[in-house]
Design a binder for these strands. Structure first.
Length: 503
RNA sequence: GGCGGCGUAGCCGAGUGGUUCAGGCAGGGGCCUGCAAAGCCCUGUACAGCGGUUCGAAUCCGCUCGCCGCCUCCA
């Protein structure tokens, strides 16, 4: 069974499913008020990998991730653009899912919207008022943190020291500076919902409590998100659940953030790169690989250099696929079972030792860097076997590597970046294109504007070069290679003829 | 002020009380190739500094320096 760091205890602990053979997981999703950036991409990828790995381990995962579509920032943005909050939320929710699809992040089983749960939130707030853990002020309803046992758990800091450090003074009627809004009374021009304690809108933290309990039930297995959510967001969720007498998650998992020059990537610092920008200029898989190369709890430095690094490493994986046709192997029914049916690995004759090693590393607090190092070792062994003429062994290892990559959500030789065009038959080449299209199916939509298949002109150059080589006209062949290079293609001669790939 | 994290070879980035310097990228040499590309082989003797514990520490403890984060919205 996998062991994961639990922010509530500060230790790496086994994840014990509440219900046998299945895992209930709630991951805090985005507030849709702007374009998603690399930081959002990281948390989405981290939990996508966790979800895939749990499934790979034979568990059924009930994955819920919310969309926060009512919030101060959405209201502010709508006001500044002169459109409705609904417009803003709809626009950026679409951006969100587009980016997720491009990154190959599997859709959660459910993606509840805060605005669909306002009635439940009103009920929850009423419950907290009734029990005396919440109180009303002129501008809303607040939760009294003093009423919550052990408040500060997820901040890993006791309440008194948290309070001492509070930079913002209690806003007039708040009993404690740490108290937070459960309900904000209506202000002119803002969206409102009816409530017995005055019409208004919900605070930020209540939605996750209500939605996770509704969809996953009390004491669900995993609650995740970025480390900056640990406090106050998650602690405030926990506080409310506690006030309601309804336990929330048993395991709190948080990922580290993306840094730029050592500093946290944040919109407020203006040092962010949007996912769109990244996806427009690189293979979406390379960001996944970059994320996998560091441990999920560590900060991740993203620069042009580290991004390029990851792309090169990805090229090494693709090269293996190219050599052994692993991508072609992992199709259809086999593809569907990859990463979701560990038992099939045995039936398919994959390398059991490599898979066992991979799993033990992943089980150790989702140690993807170590797991990936193991995959690269398998890659090397596959090449060695191939060089020795041990084709079957080479294929077995290559297939194993492909299988493990699939478990991580990495599809080898996928996308235009890895497109290789066999020399003979444009039809074959077109087949390669269809292959890439299937990737799109898996992702939900076709990835990005990055790269595109070779056009007729390029294919003509490839064919001409093959003729030149057949005639041993090396200078002509070299000139054509140069032309292809200028067009952005790297040439590789193989026993099957000239192949090209995006440089 | 309180709480917490980090500092590893050219770069990124794991790991751990003691055999082969995780892995990737970059670099050097060789093999392969018409030349390349891809691949393989060889090549790096790093763990901020200072003390301490230990037969032995980069790994444990203490201190110092530097960087970052949370305590306010934040993935």
């Amino acid at each position: 069974m996998i062991r994961l760091h639990n922010t509530a205890s500060g230790k790496v602990e086994p994840v014990v499913p509440r219900d046998a053979d299945s895992i209930s997981m709630y991951v805090c999703g985005p507030t849709v008020y702007g374009e998603p950036h690399l930081g959002h991409g990281r948390f989405a990828l981290v939990f996508d990998v966790l979800r895939r790995y749990l499934e790979f381990s034979g568990l059924t995962v009930h994955h819920v991730s919310n969309i926060t579509d009512v919030d101060d920032k959405i209201i502010a943005r709508a006001a500044s653009e002169g459109v409705t909050e609904v417009d803003i939320a709809a626009r950026y929710e679409k951006s969100w899912w587009d980016a997720m699809d491009a990154l190959g992040v599997l859709r959660p089983a459910e993606a509840p919207h805060a605005t669909d749960y306002v009635e439940d939130m009103v009920e929850a707030v009423a419950g907290m008022l009734a029990s005396g853990s919440a109180y009303e002020t002129s501008d809303g309803v607040y939760l009294s943190v003093d009423a919550v046992e052990g408040y500060g758990l997820l901040a890993r800091q006791p309440l008194d020291t948290l309070r001492a450090g509070a930079r913002v003074e209690a806003g007039g009627e708040k009993r404690s500076p740490m108290d937070f809004a459960l309900w904000k009374r209506a202000k002119p021009g803002e969206p409102v919902w009816p409530a017995p304690f005055g019409e208004g809108r919900p605070g930020w933290h209540t939605e996750c409590v209500v939605m996770s309990l509704d969809l996953l039930g009390e004491g669900f297995d995993i609650h995740g998100g970025g480390i900056d959510l640990a406090f106050p967001h998650h602690e405030n969720e926990r506080a409310q659940a506690s006030a309601l007498g309804r336990p929330l998650a048993r395991h709190w998992v948080h990922n580290g953030w993306v840094t730029v020059g050592g500093e946290k990537m944040a919109k407020s610092l203006g040092n962010y790169t949007s996912l769109d920008d990244l996806l427009a200029r690189s293979d979406p898989r390379s960001y996944r690989l970059l994320v996998l190369r560091s441990h999920y709890r560590q900060p991740l430095e993203v620069t042009v250099r580290t991004t390029k690094d990851a792309a090169e490493a990805l090229g090494r994986l693709d090269a293996l696929s190219r050599r052994f046709g692993a991508a072609g192997w992992l199709e259809g029914e086999v593809r569907q079972r990859a990463g979701v049916d560990q038992k099939a690995a045995g039936e398919l004759g994959l390398d059991a030792a490599a898979i066992a090693s991979f799993c033990s590393r992943m089980d150790d607090d989702l140690d993807t860097p170590a797991a990936l190092a193991g995959v690269f070792e398998v890659v090397r062994q596959a090449h060695v076997a191939g060089d020795r003429g041990e084709t079957q062994r080479g294929e077995q290892l290559a297939h194993t590597a492909d299988w493990l990559c699939a478990a991580l959500g990495l599809r080898l030789e996928a996308g235009a970046g890895g497109a290789w065009v066999p020399v003979r038959g444009g039809a074959e080449a077109a087949g390669g294109g269809a292959h890439a299209g299937e990737v799109g199916t898996e992702r939900g939509t076709e990835a990005s504007t990055y790269g595109s298949g070779p056009d007729e002109e390029v294919l003509a150059l490839v064919e001409e070069r093959d003729r030149a080589r057949a005639e041993r006209d090396w200078s002509r062949a070299d000139a054509l290679r140069d032309e292809l290079a200028v067009a952005g293609w790297t040439v590789e001669d193989t026993p099957q003829g000239t192949k090209i790939r995006r440089t």
